[in-house]
Every structure is written in C-alpha cells, then in structure tokens.
Nucleic acid binder design. Sequence first.
DNA 1: GATTGGCACTCGCGTGCGGGGAGTGCTACC
DNA 2: GGTAGCACTCCCCGCACGCGAGTGCCAATC
Lengths: 340, 340
Amino acid sequence: MSEDRRLDVLRAIVEDYVATKEPVGSRALVERHSLGVSPATIRNDMAALEEGGYIAQPHTSAGRVPTDKGYRLFVDQLSTVKPLSSPERRAIGTFLETAQDLDDVVDRAVRLIAQLTQQVAVVQYPSLRRSALRHVELVPVGLRHLLVVLITDTGRVEQRTLELGTDLDESVVARLRTRLNVSAAGRRLSELPVALGELTDGFAPADQVLVNAVVAVVEETLAQESEERVVLAGTANLARVGSTDVRSIGPVLEALEEQVVLLRLFSEMAEDHAAVAVRIGRETQHDGLVETSFVTTGYGDEGGGSVARIGSIGPLRMDYPGTMSAVRAVARYLTRILAQ
Amino acid sequence: MSEDRRLDVLRAIVEDYVATKEPVGSRALVERHSLGVSPATIRNDMAALEEGGYIAQPHTSAGRVPTDKGYRLFVDQLSTVKPLSSPERRAIGTFLETAQDLDDVVDRAVRLIAQLTQQVAVVQYPSLRRSALRHVELVPVGLRHLLVVLITDTGRVEQRTLELGTDLDESVVARLRTRLNVSAAGRRLSELPVALGELTDGFAPADQVLVNAVVAVVEETLAQESEERVVLAGTANLARVGSTDVRSIGPVLEALEEQVVLLRLFSEMAEDHAAVAVRIGRETQHDGLVETSFVTTGYGDEGGGSVARIGSIGPLRMDYPGTMSAVRAVARYLTRILAQ
DNA sequence: GATTGGCACTCGCGTGCGGGGAGTGCTACC
DNA sequence: GGTAGCACTCCCCGCACGCGAGTGCCAATC
C-alpha cells in the first residue's frame, strides 16, 4: 500500500469535503480525482486513514470526513499556496491606501478579510506594549482636569483624563510635559516605568502630587493590557446557509464577544510573527470554537517596532489555502501602509 | 361586546405570547387571566381583533399571534412601566461609575443593556456635531508630520495626522495652537467653520500653507459624519435557543454590521430626545429587521449639549416594558455619569 | 344584544413503516 | 498489493395515520 497515495487520498477528501460540504465516499473520490485505482483500493486506504485518526465517518455507511488531525496534516503538508488573482491584489492595495487614519486602515483591513474569506475577520490593534512612545501631551481641561495623551509610533493615540485635587499650574504642567518627553521619546513602552521613576526629582514638593499622579496614569495606561482591542467584521457570514451547523453559532458568537479569548489566541499564535498560523478545532482550547478554525498572521513589524495580528475564523471545513493566502496578503499590505 | 375587554384580550395575548413563545388560544387565555368570561366569548373578541389586524394566526387551527400593529397598540396604550428592582438599579450605578474613561463608560453601558434585556444592545457615540469643542492640540510628530487632536466637552478625542510639504516651525505651531483655542473654546462644532475662516490673518504668507492645512483638517474632521460610530454588544443573544427563528439571524447580523442602517434608525428615532422610542418590525424600514423591534432613547443631554442614543434590538416578541425600562434606566445613569 | 355551550372541521405535528440508495467491510481472486 | 463482487448497515425520504389543539358557527340562554 503506497504511503504517498494515502496522503493523496487524504488531500482529495479534504478538498472534496470542503467543496461539497458532504461526507465523501470512495467512488466519488476516484471519479473526481484521477487517482488511477479502483474504489475498493481507496477503501483500503481510507480504512488506514481512519485507523490513524485522520478521517472519520459521521455514521456507519456514510462517507468520510476529515478530523481535526486530518485537517492539521493537510495544512502542514498537503496544501499548496493559492495565490490571489492580480485584480484581487490590486483591489486590496487601493482599498487600503485610500484609508484616512489608523482606525480607518484597521477597519478596512478587517472588512477586507471578511469579504475575501467569507468568514469572520478579526484584527488586533497594534499593541501598546511593543510599540515605541513618540510623544506625551498634557492638556489642561478646565482648572482641575488634565488630559493625558500618549502617542505611539504606530500613530495610535491613548488618552486618559486625570482629576486633580488642586488647581493646575500651567508652568508646572509645561515643565512636566518637557521632561516627560525627554524621558519618553523613542522608548519602548516596556522600558518606560524605569525612566519615569526618576522624574519626580527636580519638582517642588507641592507639585510632586501632580507629577506623581501623571506618572501613575501613564504607567497605568501602559500596564493596561485590556487596551488591546480587537475588532470584528463579517459575523453575518456565520449565518450563511451551508455554513456550520446553524445551531452552533451561538457559542461562537459568545466566544467572539469575549475579547479575552481572542487576545489569548492571538498571543499564543504569535511565536513566528511573519508566518501564517492555524488553529484547528480543539486546538483553539475554547469550547465555543471547537467547530471552527482560526487562521492568523502578524502585521506591522517593519522597523522592528509594533506588532499585532490579523486573522479569519471559519468552520473546520474552510478553504485553508485560500484563507491563508488572503490573510497573508492583507497583512502584507497592512504592514506596508502602516510604515507610511 | 365590550371594547375594553377586547383590549384586555390583546394585552393578554401579547403577554402570554411573549412569555410562552407559542400562539395563544382562547382556552389558555381564560385559564391564565381572570377575564371572567368563557373561551367562546374570547373567540369572538379574537375574531374582531383579527379583523382589525391586531392579531393573526400562523395557520388555521392554531392560536393567535400579535401582528406588528398589535404590538404597536400594546406599546402605545396597553403596557405599564415595569420599574427595575432596586438591586438592579444599584448594580447599574456602581458598574457605570467605576468606568475609567469615555470608551469604558460607553462599553459598559452597552454590555449592561445586553445583559439586562438579553438582547442585542447598540450605543451611538456622542455626536461631534452637537457637542462643543473644548480644546485643540497640535503635536509635532517628527519634522514633517503634525498630529491634530480635538477634544470635545463630552471627553471625546478625535485625531488626525497631517503630512506637511515643509519642515515645521515650532513657534508658528505654538501661535496657531493659541489662536485656534481662542477661536474654538466652547463653540459648538457647527459654529466653528465661520470662526476658523478668519484665522489665516496675522500669519506670514509663508506660514499660511500650514495654517490653511490645519484649518482644513479641523473642518474636514468635523464635517465627517462617518465618525458617528456605533458599538454593539450581546449579538450572541440572537442565537439563544427560543429566540427568533434561528435561520433569520443572518439578515439581522448583516443589518447590525451596517453602521449606516443603525445610524439612520437612531436619527429617525431622535425626535423626542428624552422619550423611549420603539420601532416594531416593518417600521424599521429595513428588510433584515422585519422580525425585530428596536427600543431606543437618548442620553447625555444635560447642559443642552451633546446628544446620542442607546438602545436594544430583539425579536418582535420581546418584553417591551422590561426592555424599555432597562434602556431608559441605563440612559439616565449614563447621562449622569457623562455630566461628571 | 352579549354570552355561552356544543359541535364539526381544519391543520400541524409526531410516529411508525417501507423502499431506495449510498457507502462500507470482507473475501476471494488476479 | 490491487481489484471485483457481494452482503450488510444505516440514513433519508415520502407517506399514511391518529391525536390534539384550536377555531368558527349556531342555537340556546341570560
């Protein structure tokens, strides 16, 4: 029994099942693929594949369906990259280039992936932690409120309003602003707390309350991982006819609303930034997502600075090569755009 | 035939149908409500109500179900307000008060409504158009980029990056910053363009390029209605068992992803800011939402300034009184919090 | 005139049954 | 190892049937 052919059979099963959404039998397989052998032979191969846990039958006397393990093998070894058509590439480029600001770019990118993959697209906002601080701005608002604005080199802006116990002294604010920027300019956010610690020196004791409050806010903002926002698009694709079992979309929607879940997945998949990572079924480690797969890749690494991820969530029986190339293509354009 | 009792019957039908999710028959009606008459009498009333278009039967020999018109009458005349329990009120208050910033407040409010109503919650961000400008900040970013930050009195921050043809002159930026704030402070955004027009005077011709560019960006940002964002929560509630027909959630999700649709609805329902407005079924004027109702109210009107809406979308057979009071309660707290 | 009890009628829905078909596993053969 | 044949399993579909809920109508009653 040829080992190669067995893998061919697995590939054929995955492809047919993805295309038809129905369990695939031995006869259909030899008809649609030129395997050069008879159905009976295929049946033997299928028995072996089932033995190995790569395929399963929903019920006796039904065709075979790939298991998580089968999809995994397919993704790792059997699938070939499916390049996008050049009109598609062009559309991606122009669509992203005409965006207005960071929010707009991210929004368009995620819609684009939803559109291309016909699945749910997810994008993680550029992470504060890994990006560098470009500027800190302090803006007095009224007498007793101070707006703290942090600007990162990815163009992201974070703001916090600070309520003070005493009235503001504009000159102190100005001095603090200057010193903050001297300490902060170009630093990674993770390196900042150290630099900020020394800052209180050189201010009058009366003003140190203000200084400490501002420093605290800056640190707190940076520490706040919850600021790692994710944005979704294409949730309606979950309900498309022929998608996953319609009943199962409830848990999926719940999972998608839990930003924590998505952020955990993103971070777990971040090992190799540039590569396209895939989590299949139970590999997601989340009950609501056992019947889905998640395809992600990193974007925005140019200049070594900020890093985040973008991806697509779809049914187990998704078009893996297509999804992977769509995600990768959008991520590349996104990276290019963000580099300005 | 008593007109009053007929309305009682309609109310009972709506209440029972909402509670049981099943068409309600004449016998069940007399058993569950002390109407003091026999099923046969009820049947006569039901025939009249059907004649009037307030109820319908899914099929012959089934019970009755309210029509859009029936729900409308119920909402307008038959329902009584259902006040929230005091623990609920307290929970709302503390949950909203512990929020960090505007984004957080809005996010919590929308989750709260999703939780309370077990439906999809929608919130519209405070509108730029109607709020007043508090401060404009110009932040040089590198030599040739300028970040323009607009701060409104609702605590909202808008930013735009500006790419310049020439290098920045810090002193010109400082002067422009000052003058902008003099012109802008406390003005409504709609009144601004006039004030900005006169601003170019008093700058050297060489600097007018910069000034004009900044003014253009400010105006453009204000003009951009697309900045009216909406945020959702609780979409998973759409898929809860016993919710609407599970197949029909696809169109609903599509509609919800179209911010335009929601913004149109919000604006159409904004006539009476403080009141709770309801759109039932076809009244939404949107195909994807014919099987849903939308309950909204305004929030944030204190001081006469900014105004936006918050609401809940659920099946036609929703608990109208409960939804209405939940939406109103959250809106009130929200208004209070935003007033600081 | 409104209300009521009685009654025939209509359907939806669940159940059981049987046939057709797809697909498998096994075995004997090349 | 590959192939052909064959019995077997089980899903799915259509169908008939009966039950039950609910209605509409009518004649009787208050």
